[in-house]
Design a protein around this nucleic acid. Sequence first.
DNA 1: CGTTGCGTTGAATAAGGTCAAATAGAGTGG
DNA 2: CCACTCTATTTGACCTTATTCAACGCAACG
Lengths: 222, 222
Amino acid sequence: MCLPCCGLSRPERELANRLAFSRSRLRRGEHLYRIGDSFNSLYAVRNGFFKSVTPLDNGREQVTGFSMPGEVLGLDGIGPERHAFNCIALEDSEVCAIPFGGLQSLAFEIPSLQRHFYKMMSREITRGHGVMLQLGSMNAEERLAMFLLNLSRRFAARGYSESEFNLRMTREEIGSYLSLTLETVSRTFSKLQDERLICVQQKLIRILNKAGLEGVMGRQGN
Amino acid sequence: MCLPCCGLSRPERELANRLAFSRSRLRRGEHLYRIGDSFNSLYAVRNGFFKSVTPLDNGREQVTGFSMPGEVLGLDGIGPERHAFNCIALEDSEVCAIPFGGLQSLAFEIPSLQRHFYKMMSREITRGHGVMLQLGSMNAEERLAMFLLNLSRRFAARGYSESEFNLRMTREEIGSYLSLTLETVSRTFSKLQDERLICVQQKLIRILNKAGLEGVMGRQGN
DNA sequence: CGTTGCGTTGAATAAGGTCAAATAGAGTGG
DNA sequence: CCACTCTATTTGACCTTATTCAACGCAACG
């Protein structure tokens, strides 16, 4: 079941089965959707990895987020009825499209689904504000520690290892997301490795000292 | 009428009148709501000025936004049903409380109201991502230019002068919002003044060259 | 007046960006 | 299997920018 159904009770789930989900596959580099595309569906990531990207006023692009299996994509389109980001597969991936029209009619019958939506959207708000706001007050080491711990937590929540994982994105994409140059990202990985907090082998990251990493974040501005 | 009713047609507005709005006054420094307060209402700012503040992990606080008359406060609470920010009056202010329960029942009868909500929440998402994301790639001058232009646009939209206005917040609060130190904010105001783009007299700001200010933002990372 | 909060300015410092070069892998074709 | 190429990554040297620390100015208010 690929719907984010954690907010639903059993009979509601059966109702939800009325929705026709369609899967689709994407190759690495393909767009799931583009800015301005009309918004029809939410997408549950079944496998693979995605980045969301937005163009900046100055013509450059900024990565706004990464999405892994089990997570929902496309919430940015709900209000404006057009997508606000470009969403691109970082590797060959598969998603499950959830038609929003049907979902919305369902929501009229199922108040808890309505609430569930508000929750998801609201989490988006908080995530955006929360994560992004913090960035400003954090130095490079803190940003990277936060990034890794966030990934780790999400991997764990989806049943993957929390201490060892492959980054699917380049240093440049990480830098764009964290507002750092790729050189600083690289240097900071090395620094965290020197401190024996992580082990870096190309894209493979091993977290050696989780508490230590959390300490990096905690000691900010103290 | 203090409801954000721009999305409603006439009969819907009449329906909306069934909602009981209650006004309340706040003194400078008083909390409109605090983090963790149960979420009951949205608030339309009638007059005055507010800041939203969130505590950071390290114990310090960060200003996440400013709100002026005509704007809606409290959207952060919808999903979690508890407020996610502290909201504090920057001067003696008056708000209009819109009970959310009633609003939600209304939304069941009025699909356009439902959509309107999605829109407002979604705008919150976009605003958060949009503004905050940009910060990372902007230097102090660009940040301040953006801040002033944003304020100017919002003042204009509410019927105030777009070229001359009083800042209700301190340099420190601006700095917190933009992730700069208060000294850098001050220096940068001076710099913009030296460039004849603005005129600063304590809290009174006059925008002398709007195009120039926009140019400051535009030339980022060119 | 003296105090207090807020704002401005200067000098020294630290952090990250920029530019440049070296290295390492992954994939390709011979 | 090897050379070749392309891209990603790492590292170094230098420079720009914002922060830090400190001093001073100013206005409001008791």
